[in-house]
Design a protein around this nucleic acid. Structure first.
Lengths: 120, 120
DNA sequence: CGCATCCACAACCATTCGGTTGACAATCCG
DNA sequence: CGGATTGTCAACCGAATGGTTGTGGATGCG
C-alpha cells in the first residue's frame, strides 16, 4: 500500500525466503555461472529462473557481468553479513549456544542492528 | 502453484522479510508482550498486527501463552539459529571479516546447512 | 548471410501478502 | 446482568509474487 522503497534488509530476507533462490546462491559458491546454468537444475522456464536471478540481484546478493550474449553471475555476500549481524543480536536467546567462549568474540551491541529507522 | 508445504527455513526468512515483524521480534527481547502491546506502536489495526504475530508464530519465532483473554507472546529464537547457520556458510565470501581469529571458533562444515533436500 | 543460442521484456494468470472493516467469542469487572 | 476489553475469524481489496507463453534483440558461428 504505502509503496515505500523496501529497505535493504527486507529485500535480503525476502530473497532468501525462496528455496530456489537459496539453491542458486549455493551454486554460486564455486564461481561464476551464467543465467542459463543457474536455471538448468530447476523444472521451470529460463524466464522464471531469470526472474529469480533478478530478485537476488536487486537484493544485492548477486552481481552480473555481461559478456557477449551470456550474463555471468557471481555471489556478492556482503549483504548476507548485514543479515547475519541482525540475527546475531538474538544469539543470547536461542538455546543451543555452542560454547560460552564464543560470546567473547561476538561483542554484541546494546541495540539490534540498524533497522526500522524509517518509522518516525 | 505447487502448493507444497513451505520448508521451515523459508518460513523463517519470509517472516523476517517484513520490518513490522522484525520490530515485533525486537520488542520481545525483554520479555513477554501481549498481542495488543505488540500492535500498539504501529499505525495499523489490531487485526493486521495479529496477522503478523501469527506469521511469526507459524515460522516458529514466537510462542503464545493464552491466559484469560490476553495472549502473551514470547520470543523463541531457536529457529533463528538455523537461519544464522545457513547464512554463516557464506561467511568466507563476504569481505568485512571481523578478524581471522573468529574462524577458529566457527568451524564450518563442507556443505551448507541442510536445505533444498526436498528436490531429489 | 543465415541460423541457433542466450537472455530480457511484456503480457497474462493464479496465489499470496498486507492491509482494511465488520462481527463475534470469551473474559474481566462494575 | 451488562458493558468494556482482548483478540480471532471472515470477507474483501489492491499490490506483489511466482509461474507461464510469446516475442524479439544481441551475439556467436557455420
Amino acid at each position: 500500500m504505502v509503496v515505500q522503497p523496501p529497505d535493504p534488509l527486507s529485500a535480503v530476507f525476502r530473497a532468501l525466503g525462496d528455496p530456489t533462490r537459496r539453491e542458486m546462491l549455493h551454486r554460486l559458491v564455486d564461481g561464476e555461472r551464467t543465467v542459463g546454468e543457474l536455471a538448468e537444475p530447476f523444472r521451470m522456464s529460463v524466464q522464471a529462473a531469470s526472474k529469480h536471478v533478478k530478485v537476488l540481484e536487486r537484493a544485492g546478493l548477486v552481481r552480473r557481468r555481461v559478456q557477449g550474449r551470456v550474463h555471468y553471475c557471481r555471489l556478492h555476500a556482503d549483504r548476507l553479513a548485514e543479515a547475519q549481524r541482525w540475527i546475531a543480536f538474538y544469539e543470547r536467546f536461542w538455546s543451543g549456544r555452542l560454547d560460552a567462549l564464543e560470546t567473547m568474540f561476538h561483542p554484541r551491541s546494546a541495540h539490534p542492528p540498524d533497522d526500522e529507522e524509517r518509522a518516525p
